[in-house]
Design a protein around this nucleic acid. Structure first.
Length: 739
DNA sequence: TCTCTCACTTC
DNA sequence: TGAAGTGAGAG
């Protein structure tokens, strides 16, 4: 147990979870090394606070190191990667006005999650949307009481495999289907002060899971940025679209910002809790999971043995299977028999599964998941624990604390799954394989951004990352729109953090997100959330403008108009997403900005960008650039400093366009690294200048392949910058906002 | 596998 | 009281 479950994951680590990462990572790393190495490394090396920091850096660095060395797994400590002195110098550049915060996040009801995880958590997805159970709840600490934060959650693919429940176990059944467009769920109370967030348990129970591709619950908001986290293509919504029989990993993000509009420029601190990993299903596969749900979910009381009505039916059914029945009894009695039996089964699964896994042969070894090897007893005990207990538990995992081990590594991924398997089989195989790593990695994760964040702050730049489109492969047609997007990422860094934030989440995180790359859409509901969006409209104006280039305020425009305008203005920016979706290289077609507005899928011209292809990658960058431009405005915000960040990010993106996508996680790291340098420049200099400088620099660093893109991107960026500069002249309300 | 309806529950 | 969340079960 100790393993993974408790610890939060660091952003960087998240990479590990990403299916694509493995593929991308290499490229990314290479490019990073080749072109950006100097800059990147420093960034990466940022020493995090303690363990947490380690985890991230390690995760990030590892891929790169591997590339360099050509060895899959070097044991090189991330600390050895780069000079920290460098970072510090950068750090000095950062503004320090802000009160530093060191957010820590604890997963609530961890015990409950563990119980499910052991058996391989399954979450039902329906056309109309189904809530998660257990509900995702966290408790935050270490926030600046006065500052405002936006808390978000999203769910990313844990690997690139498709699963099947066979012989009581989850086994890999092939390669994953194309990813569905990802959506970010913004907590309805956002933005709120640190004090407010820390005073209560933050729950995301309203988030629904669906397999309905045409789900409209998500609103698209155009986000100009290429924030790593957002990958340039991220939508917001109250419902997350998932593929059945695929494994997913929920992520929690803390963004210090007082306005949603600032998200793109802000630093994301991402936290992963391996125990919350689950497989999406349209119908429960594992009876044990079903029983756990019934036993713990209040709405399923009617199915409890003790309950009325149905329970009897259920019982009968149950009786049919002795095992199940027995297990229940045990539960009722409070005995662990069930669990033990389960465990046994589980173990067997693991074993069996492992082979299966291996057979799978997908790139994801991780899928195989290392089994955590939890003892049956543990599992049992956990199982028996009621949800409530879990809930109360809050936290165990703080993100920051644990260093992330290798989350990034596949093994780590395996871990996560493994945990699941525990209960069941499915992954057991993986578990076994990965076991060593996996455990660690997952666990480690915890720190995620946060730890980084602190550090990051210190080091101004780090972050940016890159990403690349990469995904193309993944990109799917249906989702295609998204897929293509792939964008870069990294951003994390760039954003906000100027100083610190970048770190945190950055690399890893960015990477994670990136793969998803979708267009960013804001979900109406989310907006509804309130405060966060309140200013959005106003804020959007600037963004749009930046994106579009000149378009005057977006606000007036309807989404479509906006989009078109944006497209026209800065073709570069939008394109990617749009391209995919729309086709039009320009993205115009895309939907309007609904985000702010009522429209449902608006695209952000800028945001979009995500184009899938490398070319697109370049484009992405542009968007970023815009963002960067924006930043200055944003400065007000703590992150504003981020200005540099954006730059860096842009740089990264430009530099490693293709990679970015692939790299996802890596990107993040890379980005951070790259970013740092860039950021530095930014900080010191004017935003615009910094940007351009960054851009140029990025281009320089770019690898040969990227060069072409770079150039185009650069030109685009420049144009964008010009536009931006023009825009900048305009006042930004958002600036004032910053916490 | 997935979709839909049902009876039951919580809020 | 009704809206909404549950798993079961049929198709």
């Amino acid at each position: 147990m100790s393993l993974s479950m408790r610890d939060p994951v660091i952003p960087g680590t998240s990479m590990a979870y990403h299916p694509f990462l493995p593929h991308r990572a290499p490229d990314f790393a290479m490019s990073a090394v080749l072109g950006h190495q100097p800059p990147f490394f420093p960034a990466l090396t940022l020493p995090p606070n303690g363990a947490a920091a380690l985890s991230l850096p390690g995760a990030l660095a590892k891929p790169i190191m591997d590339q360099l060395v050509g060895a899959a797994e070097t044991g090189i400590p991330f600390s050895s990667l780069g000079p920290q002195a460098h970072l510090r110098s950068l750090k000095t550049m950062e503004p320090e006005e802000e009160v530093e915060d060191d957010p820590k996040v604890h997963l609530e009801a961890k015990e409950l999650w563990d119980q499910f995880h052991k058996r391989g958590t399954e979450m039902v997805i329906t056309k109309s949307g189904r809530r998660m159970f257990p509900p995702f709840k966290v408790r935050c600490s270490g926030l600046d009481k006065k500052a405002k934060y936006i808390l978000l959650m999203d769910i990313i693919a844990a690997d690139d495999c498709r699963y099947k429940f066979h012989n009581s176990r989850w086994m890999v059944a092939g390669k994953a289907d194309p990813e569905m467009p990802k959506r970010m769920y913004i907590h309805p109370d956002s933005p709120a002060t640190g004090e407010q967030w820390m005073s209560k348990v933050v729950t995301f129970h309203k988030l629904k899971l669906t397999n309905n591709i045409s789900d409209k619950h998500g609103f698209t908001l155009a986000f100009p940025s290429d924030h790593a986290t957002w990958q340039g293509n991220y939508s917001f919504g109250t419902q997350t679209i998932l593929n059945s029989m695929h494994k997913y990993q929920p992520r929690f993000h803390i963004v210090r910002a007082n306005d949603i509009l600032k998200l793109p420029y802000s630093t994301f601190r991402t936290y992963l809790f391996p125990e919350t990993e689950f497989i999406a299903v349209t119908a429960y596969q594992n009876d044990k999971i079903t029983q756990l749900k019934i036993d713990n979910n209040p709405f399923a009381k009617g199915f409890r043995d003790t309950g009325n009505g149905r329970r009897e039916k259920r019982k009968q059914l149950t009786l049919q299977s002795m095992r199940v029945f027995d297990e229940r009894h045990k539960k009722e009695n409070g005995t662990s028999d069930e669990s033990s039996s389960e465990q046994a089964a589980f173990n067997s699964f693991a074993q069996s599964s492992s082979p299966a896994v291996s057979t799978v042969g997908t790139s994801n070894i991780k899928d195989l998941c290392p089994s955590e090897g939890e003892s049956d007893t543990e599992a049992e005990s956990k199982e028996e624990h009621g949800l409530e207990a879990c809930d109360t538990a809050k936290i165990s995992t703080t993100t920051s604390e644990e260093p992330c081990r290798d989350k990034g590594s596949p093994a780590a991924k395996a871990h996560l799954f493994a945990a699941e398997p525990s209960g069941r089989p499915r992954d057991s195989g993986r578990l076994d394989k990965a076991s060593p790593d996996s455990r660690h990695s997952p666990a480690t994760i915890s720190s995620s951004t946060r730890g980084l964040g602190a550090e990051e702050r210190r080091s101004p730049g780090r972050e940016s990352a890159v990403t690349a489109k990469a995904e193309e492969a993944r990109a799917l047609p249906s989702k295609e729109a998204f897929a293509p997007l792939t964008v870069q990422t990294d951003a994390a860094a760039h954003l906000g953090q100027g100083p610190l934030p970048g770190l945190g989440f950055a690399p890893g995180l960015a990477g994670q997100q990136f793969f998803n790359g979708h267009p960013l859409f804001l979900h109406p509901g989310q907006f509804a959330m309130g405060g966060a969006f309140s200013s959005m409209a106003a804020g959007m104006g600037p963004l749009l403008a930046t994106v579009s280039g000149a378009s005057t305020g977006v606000s007036g425009l309807d989404s479509s108009a906006m989009a078109s305008a944006a497209a026209g203005a800065s073709a570069a920016t939008l394109p990617f997403h749009l391209q995919q979706h729309v086709l039009a290289s320009q993205g115009l077609a895309m939907s309007p900005f609904g985000s702010l507005f009522p429209y449902p899928y608006t695209y952000m011209a800028a945001a979009a960008a995500a184009s899938s292809a490398a070319a697109s990658s370049s484009v992405h960058r542009h968007p970023f650039l815009n963002l960067n431009a924006m930043r200055p405005r944003l400065r007000y915000s703590p992150y504003s400093i981020p200005v540099p960040m954006p730059d860096s990010s842009s740089l990264l993106t430009t530099a490693l366009p293709s990679m970015a996508a692939a790299a996802g996680p890596l990107d993040g790291k890379a980005a951070t690294l790259a970013a740092s340098p860039a950021s530095v420049a930014v900080d010191s200099g004017s935003e615009l200048n910094s940007r351009s400088s960054t851009l140029s620099s990025s281009s320089v660093s770019l690898s040969p392949k990227l060069c072409g893109e770079k150039e185009s991107a650069t030109s685009e960026l420049q144009s964008i910058q010009r536009l931006v500069s023009g825009l900048e002249a305009k006042p930004d309300r958002s600036r004032s906002v910053s916490p």
